[in-house]
Every structure is written in structure tokens, then in C-alpha cells.
Design a protein around this nucleic acid. Structure first.
Length: 289
DNA sequence: GTGTTTGTTATCAA
DNA sequence: CTTGATAACAAACA
């Protein structure tokens, strides 16, 4: 479940490793994972290189050095996608890994492989095959960004004024608002629940019931929890690993997510879990109002 | 065999 | 057109 902090961790690390490296060869092991025709995808990328990597919400956008029909390779990890990089000497005889957390690559969940001129390799693994790689033109990329993403946290876009606007004339609940990428991007189930706990707000409250002060608090804790998680290199709950195949350590800082039935770290009440906005939702009924 | 896990989209309704 | 709620998707695990 890579969300903003996990995807940003991958972006930062991977950019250092592959920027400017010539793509010597590439292979598609699962055509479903590539949203272009295989031959065209491979033809356009081999001999090209990634100049830098951008991110919007949970979407990675690899900028291509040689621009033609296409200018970017979009990568969405969805629930179980991984991008693992290995230097030449790290590459072992793989292919026998039977679990998604065994980061020997390639393994049975490897869907796409890039090999660079220096011998390094990038592996796109995806157990559930929800994720994808897609070549798009500059215009398509801009259209996708414009149409699908709301306020981006950790950028100058993220202002209290813009955030407050989201709460005006809306009938939905707080959890659904936070998960809606078209309103605010990058937050998934883990950080939605954590942000609500940190702001002491029950996630199923109608957004219209929040006071100005509660909105302000939510605004500030979102920024805080995302930054803190990036510092911890993300949350590994199930499947997430960074581009070295290592887990993130933020899980031990989670207050509610994944802690149903356990004691609240603040007040010792039992953390509850119910379904809201179609997702498992964790909260402390004593700390959150 | 059943229920659960989630990011996103499709679909339907108001 | 906008908003919102829900199902669907995939695959593994308890």
C-alpha cells in the first residue's frame, strides 16, 4: 500500500540510481502490467534514458531524455507494486523466490525488467497486477495530472485556504474526503486514519460538522505525519519495500492503523475498527471526537 | 469455501 | 454537470 511517503522515498532513491543511465535492454514478463503495445513500449525505451523522476500523489512520472511520441513513463504501484534496483554486482541468480517480500529479483512477481548500460537493473514487481507502466506524451501527462489530482501536500499548493475550501458545501465524511485523490492527493488508508487520530477527529464525521479549528488541526497533522513517515522511509505493512528492497520503519509509529483490538498509545482504550468509505477504518473513541 | 486486504475506476443514483 | 455511494478488479492469506 504505497502512499505518498512510500512513493516519495522510492522516487528520491531511484532518481539517484538511474538518472541519465542508458537503457540497454528491457523485457516485459506480463503484458497486462504495461499499458502500451509491448513492441512499441520496448522500442521507445531501449536506447533512451530517464532524465529525472517526478511524482504527483502516488503516481511516479519518469521523464524521458529523448522525447518523441512519448515524453514520460508513468508508473503506478497501486497496492502491491515494487520498484527494486540492483547494481551489477548485486544481481544474483534469482527466479526462485516464492513470496512477495523476498526481494531477490527477478522473482515470480517480476513483471518488467530494465537493464542499463552500466549493468544495473530495475525490476517492476507486482503480486496483484493492479499497478502499471505507461508511456504518455507531454500533453497526456499534463492532462492526467490536471484531471486526477487535487492539492498536493508538501508543496506550496498546500495552503490552509485551499484545504478549507474542500470542506465547503460537501456532504461526505472526513475519511472519504481524505481518500479522494481529486481533492487532496497522496493520502491512502494508512495516513487517512493516522491523520484523523492525530487531529482527534472521528473519521466518519461529516465534513460539514468540523469546526474551523478542527480543519486547521487536520491540515497541520497531515503535513506532519507525511513528513515524519518519509523520515522513517515509509510504512511497511504488507508489501512495500524501497528501491533497495528494504522495509520502511514508520509502522512502529502508527497510532491506529492495523492496531484494532490493541490499546491506544495515548489513553489505553481499545482501538476500534469499522468499515467507512468502503475501507477498514481504525480509531480511538476516547481520543477522537 | 469465505472473508479480508486496498488504489482506483466504473456504474448508478440523486 | 456535480456529488456521492457502492461494486468491481486481483491474488494471497487466515
Amino acid at each position: 500500500m504505497p502512499e505518498l511517503p512510500e512513493v516519495e522515498t522510492i522516487r528520491r532513491d531511484l532518481e539517484k540510481k538511474i538518472a541519465g543511465q542508458k537503457i540497454k535492454s528491457a523485457g516485459i514478463l506480463a503484458t497486462k502490467s504495461v499499458h502500451n503495445k509491448s513492441v512499441e513500449f520496448l522500442k521507445f525505451l531501449v536506447g533512451n534514458n530517464f532524465s529525472h523522476i517526478e511524482r504527483r500523489g502516488k503516481l511516479l512520472m519518469f521523464a524521458l531524455k529523448k522525447v518523441g511520441k512519448y515524453a514520460f513513463m508513468l508508473v503506478h504501484l497501486k497496492m502491491t507494486g515494487q520498484l527494486i534496483y540492483r547494481h551489477k554486482k548485486q544481481i544474483l541468480a534469482g527466479g526462485h523466490s516464492q513470496t512477495a517480500m523476498d526481494t531477490t529479483v527477478p522473482n515470480k512477481f517480476t513483471r518488467v525488467i530494465f537493464t542499463f548500460s552500466d549493468g544495473g537493473q530495475l525490476f517492476f514487481n507486482d503480486l496483484r497486477r493492479f499497478g502499471y507502466l505507461k508511456l504518455v506524451s507531454k500533453e497526456e501527462k499534463e492532462k492526467i495530472v490536471k484531471n486526477n489530482f487535487g492539492i498536493e501536500p508538501l508543496t506550496p499548493d498546500y495552503t490552509l485556504e485551499a484545504f478549507e475550501k474542500l470542506f465547503k458545501k460537501r456532504q461526505t465524511n472526513v475519511k472519504a474526503l481524505l481518500l479522494n485523490q481529486k481533492l487532496i492527493s497522496g493520502i491512502g488508508n494508512i495516513y487517512a486514519d493516522e491523520a484523523c487520530f492525530d487531529a482527534r477527529i472521528l473519521p466518519f464525521r461529516k465534513v460539514s460538522s468540523l469546526t474551523k479549528e478542527e480543519i486547521r488541526k487536520l491540515f497541520s497533522v497531515i503535513e506532519h505525519v507525511l513528513k515524519l513517515s518519509i523520515k522513517h522511509r515509509g510504512t511497511t505493512f504488507n508489501n512495500y519495500v524501497d528501491s533497495d528492497g528494504n522495509t520502511g520503519s514508520h509502522i512502529s509509529f502508527l497510532n491506529v492503523y492495523g492496531r484494532a483490538g490493541e490499546k491506544c498509545k495515548k489513553c489505553k482504550s481499545i482501538i476500534l475498527k469499522n468499515k467507512h468509505a468502503g475501507r477498514g477504518t481504525h480509531y480511538c473513541v476516547k481520543c477522537q471526537k
